[in-house]
Design a protein around this nucleic acid. Sequence first.
DNA 1: GTCTATAGGCAGATAGAC
DNA 2: GTCTATCTGCCTATAGAC
Lengths: 207, 207
Amino acid sequence: MPTKKSTTPDRAGTAGRILDVAERLVQVRGFNAFSYADVAKAVGIQKASLHHHFATKADLGVALVTRYRHSFLDTLRSIEATSSHGFERLERYADLYGKVLRAGRMCMCGMLASDAATLPKPMRGSIAEFFAENEEWLSRILAEGKKRGDITFDGSAASMAAFIVSSLEGGMLVSRGSGDLDHFDDVVDRLLERVRPAKTKTKRRSG
Amino acid sequence: MPTKKSTTPDRAGTAGRILDVAERLVQVRGFNAFSYADVAKAVGIQKASLHHHFATKADLGVALVTRYRHSFLDTLRSIEATSSHGFERLERYADLYGKVLRAGRMCMCGMLASDAATLPKPMRGSIAEFFAENEEWLSRILAEGKKRGDITFDGSAASMAAFIVSSLEGGMLVSRGSGDLDHFDDVVDRLLERVRPAKTKTKRRSG
DNA sequence: GTCTATAGGCAGATAGAC
DNA sequence: GTCTATCTGCCTATAGAC
C-alpha cells in the first residue's frame, strides 16, 4: 500500500507526478469518478499535455496498476527483509492497510475491483495479478511462520492468505462506508488474534 | 441481499421498475458508472420521464438505498423466523451474499461504500445505517446463539458481527477483482468454521 | 513537452405539448 | 405520466503552433 518510496523508479518526472496524482484520485474517488481535468489541475499542466504521457485514460489506468503492483511488492519485500518474526510481519502487513485507510484512501486495487465491470479490459488482468501476488507472498509468510512456530492458523496457508486479504479489504470498505475508522482496527485485532502464536505478547499495531 | 420478494411494497409500478433496474446497475457498475439513459433504455421509457419519478440522480440514489435497507432487513427477519438454529442462520446469512455474487453483482451498499467519497451527502448516512442495522441484527443472532450453544466465538458479539460483515464484503470484492468466485466460498468456509458449534455437523452452504 | 483551441459525445436536467 | 426538443456543462481525445 505504497505512498512510500520504492526501489523501482517511476516516481520522478512529469509522468511520475501524473501517476501520483491519479493514484490518489483512484484511491479516494474511483476510476470512473476522476477526469483528466482533475489530474491536470493537481499536477499544474493542461489536460492536453497529459495525453502526451498517457494517450488514453485506459493507458493511464494500466500504468497505474502496474506501478502499484511493483511498488506494493517492494514494500512486502521490505517487511520481509526487516522483520524476521512471522507475527510481526503480519502486524506490519495489516498496518499497511491501516495507514492507507487513515490517509482517507482505499487500497487502489480494492477500489478498482469494485469498478471492475466498467474498466478497460487490459486493466482487469493486472488487477487480478495484484491479488494473486499479494496472496502468494502472504501465503509464503504464513507457511514459513507456521513451520517456525511464530504464527498459528488452521487449514492451508493459501486459504488463510485469501481470508486475510478479504478481511482487510472488506474492513477498509465497510469502515469507509460506515464513516467509522475504528471499525477497521477491530477487524485487524480479531484477525491478528487468530494467528498470534501462543507465547508472544507483541503489542498490536504501531501507527 | 434482495433480488427477492419482500414484505414492503415499492416493487410494483414504474417507480418500482426504475428502482429494480437502477439497483442492478449500481450493483454491477457502481453509482458513477450508470446514467439515466441506461435506466431509461432498460425500463423502456424516455430519460425525461425518469425525472418525473426521481427528480435528480441523488433522489434516485436515496430511494435506492432506503428500499434496499428495508428489503434486506425483511430478508434477515425471514431467516430468523424460519431457522431457529444459530449456526444455520449464519449459513443462510452468508449464502445471501454468495447468491448476489453468483448473480454477477456486489452487495449494493458495499458498492456504494466504495463510491462514498463521490456520493450526494444524503446517501451517505443511509449507507452507514445499512451497515449498522446489518451488524445489529447479526450481533443479536450471535449473542443468542452463543448463549444457546449453537454458535461459538470469542470476544464480543458486536465485534464478531463487524468482522463477519467485513469478511463477506471483502470476499465479494476480491472475488470480483480476481475473477475467481471460488475465492468467496473459501472465505465463507473459513468464516463458518470459526463459529461452528462443537457437536453439530451441518453441511455448509446450500446454493 | 507544453500550450491553445476545438471536436464530438454524453452527462444530468428542464420546458412545455399531449 | 410520458413524450420531443433542447440546454449547459463536462468528458475524452485530437490538431497543430511554439
